[in-house]
Structure formats: structure tokens, C-alpha cells
Amino acid sequence: MSPKIAVTIGDINGIGPEVALKAVVKKSVLSVCDPFIIAPFKLVNIYSPFLGIKLHVMENEDDFERGKNLANIYPMREFKNVKITLGQPSKISGQIAGESIEIAVEMCLNGKASAVCTSPVSKKSLNLAGFNFPGQTEMIAHLSNSKRYLMMFINNKIKLALATIHIPLSKVSKTITHELLAEKIEILIETLKKDFLINSPSIAVLGLNPHAGEDGLIGDEEKKIIKPVIEKFSAKNFKIDGPFSADGFFGEKKFKNYDAILSMYHDQGLIPVKLIDFYNTVNFSAGLNIVRTSPDHGTAYDIAGRLIANEKSMVQAIILSAKIYKNRANFNE
């Protein structure tokens, strides 16, 4: 049976509806899963004529139809007096995006969907609507009752995880502890085995400071925290190396020698990953009780409504969600 992928609508004032519609009708997507968009029908119907896409309104999760340029819509409740303000965050756009996420997660927990792929949202819009989370990852972890999670970015050339996510750079050093790093490495090992079927994964851990601290001259987090955690796992025969100086590690393309990399903070990992392959990179939330992916970009307010958004990352996100769902099933057999 083909996996059922619940695709959220995202921010209606951004490119979420556009990339979602474009992606779910792709042959490469339909060849591996049955994707459907959770959205108010009237809203997606605004976009569909301009994109040349027909819509099928599903009566339930099993009412899936296939056809050329046909998108399946799992209808949310219709919202009254919705005003689309392209390029701007708003309470109503946050409300629609948030409720779409809630429905998708619930469907996964109840077995009505195999995985969820979330379209880009505005954190400000979600907060205006009362969804007070730093991002979708934290929100979905809460909704799925997942105690641990790890943000990863994946394409055909690299798998990279983040030790810290959406926090100010000034707080990164204090946030990185022995316990945090050990937990993130544990999740990373588990997901590489379970979700990517890599039996004995190799992991590279990046340092926090320039030159990985230069043996304590430019910071001591590597000596006091990062290296001892690596040694703890190495003593248990896990293949974990580091801490590496990030600039040299990526400059010399050492990432090709490892199954995954653990970065200490957001931009340290995201800049090289997106330079390696921006359009085909996927955000994956490892460690959750459900499978969740998303494209690696945001709402792109600057091009919202112009119908020029690139849907490649969304396509890859849906495909990866189906692959991980199948891998987990095979791993658990």
C-alpha cells in the first residue's frame, strides 16, 4: 500500500499553497506515495486555476484519486472573512497554518496518515494565532507527545543535524552541555539506523569555536564538553570523530567521509548545506513519534502570489517522508 502523506497548507500569505499544489501532482511524488493537502478548499481553489491544477475534495483519508495535474484536498473547516495579505504575517494565516498542522499530526497518530510534510509557515503568524512555539519542529514535538527530537537537513550529498536550533547565538554556548550533546548523538545514531537503514553509522561532530577552540586558546567548550562526549561514545565502539573546525571540515569536503554531521548551531550547519544543494535539501525532524519533513526554505514573502516559487525542495520533502516511513516499517519487521 502506498504511504499516505499529509501535506499542510502552510502560510497562505507566502508560497506554501503554491509549492504544495505544484509538488503533490508531480509524477516523482505520485510514484512513491499518495499525498494530500490539508487546507480550506476555497483557499487552494484560488491558486489551482492559475497553476492548471484540478482539485479533488476528499471525503475521508481513503478517498484518494489519481489523474493528470490532479491534487487531492483534505478539507479543513472554512474560515469566514479570510483576507489574504500576500507577503505579510497575520493572525488568520497563522490560525489556518496551525490548525492544518494539528490535523496532520492527529491523522498520523491515529494511523490515518503515514507521515506529515509541512509547508513553510511564519513563526510570527503562528504566535499571533496563539501557537506559542519557536518553530514547527517544537510544535509538532508537543502535539505528538515526543520527548526528544533532532532537526536534520538532508540531500543526496549530506545529512546534517543541529545540536541547537532556534536560539540566539549568544545563548548557544550555555545551551551546549554534556547531556544535550549525548542526547542529540543518541537520536542521530538511532535515526541513521532506523530511518536510513545504516547499520553502523559514522558521525562527524563539529566544534563550537573557531579552529575548534585551538586546544583551549579560543574557548574551552571543545575540551570540557564536546570531546569528552565523543570519547564516551567512541568507548562504546560507535564511529564518531571530532570535534572538527567547521571551516576546514567543509572546505576540504570531509563531510563526504561520514554518514552524518552534528553541527553546534543553526548557521554553522545550514550555510554549507544550502550551498551544497539549496533546492533539493529537506528538513527532517528525527526522533519524533511520527515522520515529519518539510522543505528547507521559508515563506518567501517577497515572491508570494507571483507563481514563480521553486517546488523542488517540497517535492523532495514529500518523497523523503514516504521513504522514511517505509524504512521504519522495514526496520521494525
Rank of each mutant, 00 (worst) to 15 (best):
E138N: 02
I176F: 05
E138Y: 09
S144Y: 05
A161E: 07
L181K: 05
L162I: 12
I154A: 10
H178Y: 13
E186G: 15
N145D: 13
K174I: 11
Q136V: 10
T164R: 12
E183P: 09
F153V: 02
A141G: 02
A161K: 03
K157S: 14
I165E: 12
F153M: 14
N145C: 05
I158Q: 09
I165P: 00
E179C: 06
L150M: 04
M139K: 00
K157I: 08
L143T: 01
S144W: 09
F131Q: 01
R148Q: 11
K184V: 12
E138S: 03
Y149Q: 04
H178I: 08
E138A: 03
S146L: 09
K184S: 07
I158L: 13
K147P: 00
T177Q: 11
A182G: 12
K159A: 06
E186M: 09
K174E: 15
M151T: 07
A161Q: 05
F133Y: 15
A141V: 01
N145I: 04
S144F: 07
S173M: 07
F131R: 00
A182M: 11
R148V: 00
M152C: 14
L181E: 10
L181S: 10
S144D: 06
I165V: 14
L143Q: 01
I158N: 08
A141D: 04
K171G: 00
Y149G: 02
P134S: 03
L160A: 14
L181A: 09
T137W: 11
M152P: 02
K159E: 07
V172Y: 06
I167V: 10
N155Y: 08
L180Q: 07
V172D: 07
L150T: 01
S146I: 05
Q136T: 11
E183I: 04
A182S: 15
T164L: 13
L162P: 03
I167R: 09
A141F: 11
I165T: 15
S173F: 00
E186Y: 09
F131H: 08
I176T: 05
L160W: 08
R148P: 03
A161P: 06
L143G: 01
K184M: 12
L150Q: 04
A161S: 12
I154N: 07
M151L: 10
I140A: 01
K159D: 04
N155W: 10
G135S: 09
T164P: 05
E138I: 04
F133G: 01
H142L: 01
Q136L: 06
L162E: 13
K184W: 15
A141K: 02
H142Y: 13
L169N: 10
H166Y: 10
S144P: 01
I140R: 00
A141H: 05
I140L: 06
T137P: 03
A163P: 02
L160H: 07
K159W: 10
V172Q: 08
L188Y: 15
T137R: 01
S144N: 03
I167C: 08
N145W: 00
F131W: 11
G135E: 04
Q136D: 09
K159Y: 12
Q136R: 00
